[in-house]
């Protein structure tokens, strides 16, 4: 797959505060990329730069081969965006909300029903957007972002504040878009979301990327103990080194049926982030 999004040395400051400080990213087409960081880390600022809503102070950023500082209306049609503060027309129905954008993009009315069906809002087509639950509002925003069938989706904390069921529904929609070959740029401060959805992630802290890779790679990288924790059927716990030396003992425990559960000591992303920054991701 070609590189869908690329940034080189992006720097952005607001007044004396540097929000992004030398961001380098290469995001392949067709993958879900997660940008993780606590509130105020600069995630939304980076999305705004990549979508042409803000201009960086220095560095370059590309969507495909197009410099994001030179994006045109036709380029905007290639990507869908949902941001938490992007509003809906509360008094208009879900259908009317999408109808406005179908008219703007010159899309047939069938695109509205298709988009509503894709996010499971067909039954709520006539419901005013202001009367939707938070989860349904999130799905309607996704439907609006999907309408032009964009190549790239920028989703800024799409499950923020949602209950687990609604979040799961949005995860399903995001994964189905990936299955269709779409590139997804996702920001989140939820570690489980990143682990569930993302092929690659970057951990952002105070404007800098402090770690990059697949969630598994990153967690393995910070597995300093390299141990296996085994819970035995007699209720005891034991630890074995996570290498070939433990193979015989481990094999014996499994064959004899004494090993009830086996876990590696890999940290989760939250722990890795804490180790790198001394902060919690969800802070």
């Amino acid at each position: 797959m070609n590189c869908a999004i690329r940034t080189e040395g992006i720097v952005k400051s607001f007044g004396s505060r540097t929000v992004l400080d030398g961001i380098d990213l290469d995001i392949k087409g067709g993958e879900i990329f997660g940008l993780l960081g606590p509130s105020g880390a600069g995630k939304t600022t980076l999305i705004k730069i990549l979508t042409g809503q803000l201009t960086q102070d220095s560095g370059t950023s590309y969507i495909g081969r197009k410099d994001t500082r030179k994006l045109t209306g036709a380029d905007h049609k290639r990507f869908g965006i949902t941001m938490d503060n992007f509003g809906l027309y509360d008094r208009l129905s879900c259908y009317e909300n999408l109808l406005t954008f179908a008219r703007i993009h010159g899309l047939p009315k069938s695109s509205i029903t298709d988009a509503l069906a894709k996010v499971g809002l067909s039954d709520a087509a006539k419901t005013p957007a202001g009367k939707l639950s938070k989860g349904m509002t999130g799905r309607l925003k996704l439907a609006r972002a999907f309408m032009t069938d964009p190549d790239i989706l920028f989703l800024d904390e799409p499950t923020s504040g949602l209950d687990p069921v609604s979040a799961d529904e949005i995860h399903r929609i995001i994964l189905s878009e990936k299955a269709r070959g779409k590139t997804v740029f996702l920001t989140t401060h939820t570690m489980t979301e990143a682990e569930k959805l993302c092929g690659h992630i970057a951990l952002l802290n105070e404007g800098k990327i402090v770690e990059y890779g697949s969630p598994e790679e990153i967690c393995r990288r910070y597995d300093h103990q390299r141990m296996l924790k085994i819970h035995l059927s007699d209720g005891r716990d034991m630890e074995l080194p996570h290498n070939s030396d433990a193979a015989a003992a481990l094999s014996e425990l499994i064959v004899s049926g004494r090993a009830e559960t086996i876990h590696t000591t890999e940290p989760d992303l939250e722990t890795v982030f804490m180790e790198l920054t001394g902060k919690e991701l969800s802070a």
């Binding site: 809503q53 965006i81 992007f86 509003g87 809906l88 954008f101 703007i104 609006r144």
Partner: peptide, 13 residues
């Protein structure tokens, strides 16, 4: 206030 104007602008209006 509701940021719908920004969405319109991002839709090339």
């Amino acid at each position: 206030e509701k940021n719908t104007l920004r969405v319109l602008m991002m839709s090339n209006v």
